Simulated scan of single mutants.
Amino acid sequence: MTELVIKRVYEEVLPTDGYRILVDRLWPRGISKETAKIDEWNKEVAPSIALRKWFNHDPEKWHEFSKKYIAELQANNIAETFWEAHKKQEKIALVYAAKDEKHCHPLVLLKYLKSVTKK
């Protein structure tokens, strides 16, 4: 079974991170590709540009953002496609850049991917 974790791109890269997938639509500011050590950049699993702009990292909108983001994932079967392409990885680190670790889309994505893997 694949282990799924989330990790900020600004944290130290460790050998135990597993396969590192950047799940943001925009490249993180101030970090080079060499430093980030990303194995894959998957923009498709990130929230749409419109949803990201609407949310604007506002904790007051977190609950509604989470519902809308899950609806996007379900409508496009993106998470299922993502899982099919990566399920043979031993460990996947969903890498992101947001400063607010309690209100960031990888939390929603992680929970949703875990629900997809149980089907």
Rank of each mutant, 00 (worst) to 15 (best):
L26W: 06
K7V: 06
D17Y: 10
W62I: 03
T35S: 14
V23H: 05
G18V: 05
L22K: 04
E44W: 12
K67Q: 15
S66R: 12
Y96W: 07
S32P: 02
P15N: 03
L22F: 15
V95A: 04
A93W: 09
K7E: 09
E72D: 14
I6C: 10
P28F: 05
K53R: 13
P28E: 10
L73F: 01
L94K: 03
Y10H: 07
N42H: 11
A75N: 14
G30Y: 01
K118M: 12
I92D: 00
S66Q: 11
E12C: 09
V23F: 13
T117M: 13
E80N: 10
H86R: 11
K43V: 08
W62N: 06
K61M: 11
Q74K: 11
H86E: 08
I38W: 11
P59I: 04
E44F: 15
K53L: 15
L113Q: 02
L22G: 12
H105A: 12
Y10A: 11
L94H: 03
Y69C: 12
S32R: 07
E12P: 03
R8C: 11
S115P: 09
R52K: 13
I49C: 05
Q89G: 01
K7T: 04
L14E: 02
W41K: 02
A71P: 03
C104K: 01
L22N: 09
A93H: 06
I49P: 01
A75M: 11
T117I: 10
I49K: 08
K88E: 05
R8K: 10
H57T: 04
P28T: 13
R8Q: 13
I92C: 01
Y69L: 15
P106S: 10
L113T: 02
A79N: 03
G18E: 00
V116T: 07
N42P: 02
W62S: 05
E80Q: 12
S48R: 02
Q89V: 00
S48M: 12
E12A: 15
P28R: 05
K119V: 08
V23W: 06
H105N: 08
Y112G: 04
F55P: 11
I21S: 08
E101N: 14
E80L: 11
V13N: 01
L109V: 06
K53E: 15
I49A: 15
L113F: 05
A75D: 11
V95Y: 10
C104G: 09
P106D: 04
K119D: 07
L26C: 13
L110N: 01
E84D: 11
Y19R: 06
Q74F: 02
P59S: 08
I49D: 14
M1Y: 07
E60Q: 13
